[in-house]
Design a protein around this nucleic acid. Structure first.
Lengths: 220, 220
DNA sequence: TAGATTGTTAATCGATTAACAATC
DNA sequence: TAGATTGTTAATCGATTAACAATC
């Protein structure tokens, strides 16, 4: 374990974890790479390589003890130490994220939301306060917030991003459908709904055109 | 143009489009691969290769005419022909997607939402009706719906998925944090918020550990 | 024409898969 | 012990990048 880890592997780790949590606690104590791979649609070698990065709990003949493996993945992903975050943009998507209880399990704690429109402020969404945007900087600095979540319209996203960066935030999770510019040292992760949709609708279009053009079936 | 296209290229195409739409209509008529790449953080060769898959509007010396390039990408992505879809699960996330006007521009039309809890039904969210889950199959078959969007809790997602598949849906867009099993011919796209978050919080943790362990700075 | 920029062919890089030795 | 399953080293595959010819 403890080798370099690729982004691809990193993205698969939460999926293993997700699956492990669906296993009945009174079931088999261990699970093999092959079984995990079949459940998630990955090759067994890939599973072994992924897991070797974060755990040495694998045992020849028996596989991976579910409890240890779960603990090792959670440890690696840092689900035990909490990241405080702020969210900007209390529209529908913002509120959906605010009220999503599942983030807790991933070590993410949204401490408050901000919005520039007065009628959305003052309220309370699932126990999280919605504050005026003008108070963002002060709160971020006071609480040493490192992660900012952007759920404002695309037209406002860059301005919001700049304020977040100016408030000391070290990472931005951007749900606005636009590209943001950040200083080199700030981590930016774009959540990319149009890109996903493109893959999906293109596959759909292709599967339909096979009826018109049977030769296309073989193009994999 | 018209070569095989990789998933990576396909996912970048909407980003080029997004950027092209932010350009002032009265500005430069053409844009170079280098300029596009700098705006989005891609290499210029990658941009040229991506664009060559969908457009032959590129001109040596001048670059790509913005209007033609935009049209070619939109054409390729099929944003002009509409995909009807249903959404299952009228919780906060479901409602956020229902009310998102931007889908129209991507050729996606959510015709109705479904929910099993009676108190959510009968309502209307941004002009979209919320119907009882029991009516799902009939509507899908009658309207020949091909795309189903799942925004129910993880525990119900597989059951919902099975009903959608049984109703003739050919593609599933899954926002529930769980892996789904579908027949081979059905296209499945998982929207993977835990995976994104893993990448983000891991990068954040790494950037912090550099203070403790200066040698790590060079590990790229 | 000269120079900028495209598109394509070849080289590099990294991730996945295969082969196989190690081990419980 | 024999057999199943792990982890690692080598081979393959595909995407990115580099080099360069084509062209406006």
């Amino acid at each position: 374990m403890a080798k370099e880890i690729s982004v691809q592997t990193l993205q698969r780790l939460p999926l293993y974890l997700q699956y492990l949590k669906t296993l009945p606690p009174k079931g088999e104590k261990s699970i093999s790479a092959r079984a995990l791979g079949e459940a998630l649609g990955f090759g067994e070698i890939q599973v072994r390589k992924d897991l070797a990065c974060v755990s040495d709990s694998g045992r020849p003949k028996t596989g991976y003890p579910a409890v240890e493996l779960t603990r090792d993945i959670e440890n690696f992903l840092g689900y035990d130490n909490v990241n405080d975050a702020v969210l900007v943009g209390a529209g529908r998507l913002g509120k959906a994220l605010l009220s999503y209880e599942g983030f807790r399990a991933y070590g993410l704690n949204i401490v408050a939301a901000f919005d520039s429109s007065p009628e959305k402020c003052g309220g309370d969404e699932s126990g999280k306060k919605i504050l005026p945007f003008s108070k963002l900087q002060n709160l971020c600095q006071r609480m040493k917030i490192e992660l900012g979540i952007i759920t404002v319209p695309a037209s406002e996203a860059q301005a919001v991003c700049d304020v977040l960066v100016g408030s000391g935030v070290k990472a931005i999770w951007n749900f606005a459908p636009t590209h943001l510019h950040v200083p080199e040292e700030v981590i930016l992760k774009n959540e990319n709904i149009a890109a996903s949709l493109a893959v999906l609708s293109k596959s759909l279009a292709k599967s339909e055109s096979q009826f018109l053009n049977p030769a296309a079936v073989n193009e994999r």
